[in-house]
């Protein structure tokens, strides 16, 4: 298992905003099929790291290699190209398309895996019709991952309750057939019951072949979910290992003022 090259390898990644080093000299390796959790206090650079991987920010230094059929350096690519390479993400503050229906939200996710252009839409070519059919069918199949969403597929996304919107955002990200899924605080704002459900859902995702990188504050979730945990503080990696290893780490306890140790 460890023989294969890692799916994602981040090397010496750094980003500074003015004098603030949001991410500095970070190295991370991620194997295919793994669930990696990023923890750390607010402002420790976790979301910045996601923004660097997904191309929303450009790093000052460092490389992000994605191992597909061949290794690709994601640094310098525009966000839509990175999605096309197989990295999808969700956002900390949900960014679904509120006025589109649930199904349409997911259909948008297929954009970079389909290709009919304006002319084929104007003339409704057979290829375009077939592709539309494919998108609708596939979007429903992905929505079926979260059974709760299925009866709501024709509702405007803004009418969904909070926890459903979070799930919709995950399904939408899955539509681009990613190899690596970046989830930014998927359980934030969920009650313990919902968190438990979500955890089961994410395990199911891993079983169907996705690799997950999750930012999470809910330590029960981190414990139940992750194969490996990386702790951040002040833009640096301060600990790495299994959940138990990381929670015993002194620097982590220090960063959290002992909060993590109680879990």
């Amino acid at each position: 298992m460890s023989q294969a090259p890692p799916l994602l390898s981040i090397r010496r990644l750094s980003k500074a905003f003015g004098g603030l080093k949001a991410v500095s000299q970070v190295d991370i390796e991620l194997r295919a099929g793994e669930i990696l959790s990023l923890i750390g206090p607010n402002g420790s650079g976790k979301t910045t790291l996601f923004n660097l991987i997904s191309g929303i920010y450009q790093p000052d230094e460092g490389e992000v290699w994605l191992q597909d059929h061949r290794a690709v350096n994601l640094v310098g690519l525009r966000p839509h190209k990175i999605t096309a390479q197989g990295v999808a993400r969700t956002f900390q503050n949900i960014r679904i398309f509120p006025d589109m229906t649930v199904l349409e939200n997911v259909m948008v996710g297929f954009h970079c895996r389909t290709q009919s252009g304006p002319l084929s839409a104007l003339f409704k070519t057979p290829a375009q019709k077939k592709e539309e059919q494919y998108i609708v069918t596939e979007a429903q199949r992905r929505l079926a991952l979260f059974r709760q969403l299925l009866p709501l597929i024709n509702e405007p996304a803004k009418t969904l309750p909070y926890a459903y919107r979070k799930r919709l955002e995950i399904v939408r990200a899955l539509a681009s057939s990613p190899r690596l899924l970046l989830l930014d605080e998927p359980a934030a704002g969920m009650n313990p019951h919902e968190t438990k459900e979500l955890m089961a859902d994410l395990h199911r995702l891993r079983e169907s072949g996705y690799t997950l990188m999750v930012i999470e504050h809910d330590m029960l979730m981190v414990k139940g979910l992750s194969d490996r945990v990386i702790a951040f503080d002040y833009g640096q990696k301060i600990a790495e290992g299994t959940f138990d290893e990381v929670r015993r780490n002194e620097r982590v306890i220090e960063a959290y003022l002992g909060k993590a140790a109680r879990c």
Binding site: P79, A88, F97, M100, E104, V108, C112
Partner: peptide
């Protein structure tokens, strides 16, 4: 429509 609703999310979904 995705761009109208949220350009950043649209870009992250692979829309040029």
């Amino acid at each position: 429509m995705a761009i109208r609703e949220d350009a950043l999310a649209a870009e992250s979904l692979g829309i040029n």
